[in-house]
């Protein structure tokens, strides 16, 4: 199981009323690689993301994680299985401090059980370990100075950093980032990119949705292109760059036509 794809999606369909928002015949995500999911607005990227992460339910099809069927598994169970996501509209928990945001991310906390929560002795040691781990990750993300500030006081870019740092607290095998670069200033974006690039070496698979093609070119090992709910092309960044169907999808050369009938370059 250690060599096969970490995630597969087979025949995944999601419709909203008459709209076929997602219709993916077959997709395999390679282990410990960075896969970009791109496509024009309304291509179904975020919906597909929601299906993979359990935030939305498929109408048909099957999704597996490490060979295990995870179709219909709720998000909190997926997190326990090592799959974590971030959101397009950043969800920093404004009235929790940065450190509290981080500590929240740790899984299997004894102090999260109601009766054990009443007796600090049962969880303070684990809490200290979690805190140490949180501080190490904050350091790596250059957020140590924000440790005790409310997350709500952070800038948009810092929130993106925090959300990714917090996701790492779950010690995930798969990190799903929904537009990690949106609204991040260029200087911060560069350090965010470096942080993402380091993840595969730690044994983490990264899947991200992105609009900025420079970012996609720079960090992805593999690019999947969606349009009108379907996957219209996939390949290395270089291959995708010269793919006519992709360019057409973005520029609308085949506007109004069925993209599945477009010949791929």
């Amino acid at each position: 199981m250690t060599d096969g794809p970490i995630i597969t999606a087979t025949g995944v369909v999601k419709t909203f009323g008459g709209l076929r928002a997602v219709d993916v015949d077959k997709l395999e995500i390679r282990r410990n690689k960075i896969t970009a999911l791109i496509g024009p607005n309304g291509a179904g990227k975020t919906t597909f993301f929601n299906l993979l992460t359990g935030f939305d339910q498929v109408d048909a099809g099957e999704i597996t994680l490490d060979g295990q069927n995870i179709t219909g598994t709720p998000p909190h169970r997926l997190a326990a299985k090592g799959m974590v996501r971030t959101f397009q509209l950043t969800k920093a928990l404004a009235k929790l401090s940065t450190l509290e945001n981080m500590k929240l991310g740790a899984l299997h906390q004894r102090g999260e059980k109601f009766w054990q929560a009443l007796i600090p002795g049962l969880w303070t040691r684990q809490e200290r370990d979690i805190e140490a781990r949180a501080e190490a990750i904050l350091q790596r993300f250059n957020l140590t100075h924000m440790r005790d500030e409310f997350a709500g006081t952070m800038s948009g870019g810092q929130r993106k950093l925090l959300e990714m740092a917090r996701a790492l607290m779950t010690d995930p095998r798969v990190v799903m980032l929904d537009e990690p670069m949106a609204g991040v200033n260029p200087a911060l974006a560069q350090s965010l990119l470096e942080l993402i690039k380091m993840l595969p070496a730690e044994g983490r698979t990264v899947i991200f949705v992105e609009h900025n093609m420079d970012v996609v070119q720079e960090i992805s090992d593999w690019v999947v292109v969606m349009a009108e709910g379907r996957i219209i092309a996939q390949g290395t960044p270089a291959e995708i760059k010269s793919n006519k169907a992709v360019v057409d999808a973005y520029l609308g050369a085949h506007h109004g036509e069925d993209l599945s009938k477009v010949e791929l370059a």
Binding site: F55, A79, F87, K91, L104, G105, A167, M169
Partner: peptide, 8 residues
Amino acid sequence: DAARALGK
């Protein structure tokens, strides 16, 4: 949703 994504 943030809490759910973090396994809660």
